[in-house]
Nucleic acid binder design. Structure first.
Lengths: 146, 146
DNA sequence: ATGGGACCTCCAGCGACTGGAGGTTCAAGC
DNA sequence: GCTTGAACCTCCAGTCGCTGGAGGTCCCAT
């Protein structure tokens, strides 16, 4: 019913190298797939989606623990609701912080690109933009002028 | 004029461990600071900001090459304007993709948290949310219902 | 002047891959 | 139904970005 993929198909579809896919399996990120008589791995849609998720989460810079937790959440969505809830809330906080920083960095790169296009590069502030050594204090976004 | 920091001060201010700070210096991410008679490192405001930038950029999941490029851009804002411009544009694209994915993941976690709070956990879709194995095709955000 | 915490260098180890060696399987074309 | 070469298999050593420990020195508050 659901399509069957070789490890190479999966690699092509997700951009994750076969070697890395095997490694993910070994480390328990990806469930062991079925095998052909000869021992070749055979994947299904579920593997494809899960691998895509892992790749994007890694690209976004989430720690392996957070990814494991999210996968756990996906695997057992109705088990231990309270835990799932607090995990989700925690991740939302994390994500909001990222969104804020990315938006600030984007704005600064925008400004630079705009100036640059005009032939005059102003002072570069990308470091300042992303250098706020916060640790909670002054997390109010209204504090950063623009 | 500008304050002087020990490696420990820097570590406390940025959340980067002294060991890692020394390693950043060794690898050329951070310029070698002044030293006391006895050989202890002495940093200034510039180091502080630059280190904060590196930390945030790493947390956001940027590749080391991209970070190096951004630092380069910051160091020579008016040198080779065209290069700076295209680099900035490229990074903006990257950032927009991240912003989209993060927003999607956030929305899904939100939905889960909301359901969860009500005592009923629906189907978990976080994997689907972040599993789009795109590579350019279908990058239109309007395609993803919500 | 001294005690102990912070600092120094050097180096080995770890997590997350990556790549190569050496051998087997699969499937497309004859 | 045989061939042949690309894709797959396992095992294992190497890389990158840190991290931690050993063994020793510096700094400064008392």
């Amino acid at each position: 019913m659901s399509a069957a993929y070789s490890i190479g198909d999966l690699a092509r579809a997700t951009g994750v190298k076969p070697t890395t896919i095997r490694w993910y399996e070994q480390e328990g990120w990806l469930p062991p797939p079925a095998r052909t008589e000869g021992g070749h791995r055979v994947y299904g849609e579920g593997h494809l989606r899960r691998l895509g998720f892992i790749r994007h989460a890694r690209e976004l810079g989430f720690e392996s623990e957070a990814i494991r937790a999210l996968l756990e959440l996906a695997d057992h969505p109705d088990a231990d609701c309270g835990k799932a809830h607090s995990l989700a809330i925690g991740q939302i906080r994390e994500i909001d912080a990222r969104l804020r920083r990315l938006a600030a960095l984007r704005a600064e790169l925008d400004r630079m690109a705009a100036n640059c296009a005009g032939g005059v590069v102003g002072q570069c502030r990308i470091i300042e933009t992303l250098s706020d050594f916060d640790h909670g204090h002054c997390a109010d976004p209204s504090h950063r002028g623009q």
